[in-house]
Amino acid sequence: MQVKEFKIKWGMVIDIDKCTGCGACMIGCQVENNIAPMTKKDPYNYVQALTKDRDDPSNKLRTLTWMNIYELSNGQPYPNHETAYLPRPCMQCGSPACVPVCPVVATDKNEEGGIVSQIYPRCIGCRYCMAACPYHARYFNWWDPLWPEGMDKGLSTAVSPRPRGVVEKCNFCHSRYLDAKDKARQEGSDPMNLPDGAYVTACTDICPTKAIHFGDLNNPEHKVYELSRSKHAFRLLEKLGLHPQVYYMSEREWVRKQGDNYNAGGGAHH
């Protein structure tokens, strides 16, 4: 698939040298996007009660973490060991692996801004997109979303809770984009030329070290424009040609090296 280019290209530049892996972004994301806490019991389903519990949050392969944090290591033994944290939202690829494979057009990259959408009411839950995404940015609703008693009253209006059986992922808090455009229209400014900071994601907002920068990668007035062009910037798996709209930056070479494959071990004993 060809790279889809848009006039506006929303993107992130995440400064790994600033990220402490505290997890605030992951929690902010769940709250913004109405992701239910992982509860073991399903009080509405007696068959569930008779069989095994739903998943434990420590099973990292069953969580719903649109924003996920990976721990990086330089692989050296003590005392030369170094560590870093890499937050991983959806990369909103320019040439997404997931979009062309979806049989029902439940995910698309067709809107100005270049955000890869996910249409929950259309998703049939085949999980082909998950198999396609090398970043593991896509998550499946293995169970029904259930909030512990009383907790469902405080829900965000950003997005409806998804039923079980559909795939979901980060969409750069798309409703915030709509809100920002609406606000611009009301104020008589150009919704297609939002100033830096008029639209940011929940994770960007909440990050205590401001490691996440968000903006239009094509707009020189946005900070990400310059940051994404810095010599310390890199993207994940650039060699595969997916053209992610999420950049990372680090002054540490070993961190940058973890962003892609470099025929590790020099081909080893091949």
């Binding site: 068959v47 569930q48 198999a131 593991h136 998550y139 499946f140 293995w142 169970w143 029904d144």
Partner: peptide, 14 residues
Amino acid sequence: YNGIGTTGLDNYFG
């Protein structure tokens, strides 16, 4: 009735 969570599949092995 319960969902595909009952299987051994997960987010890495969709």
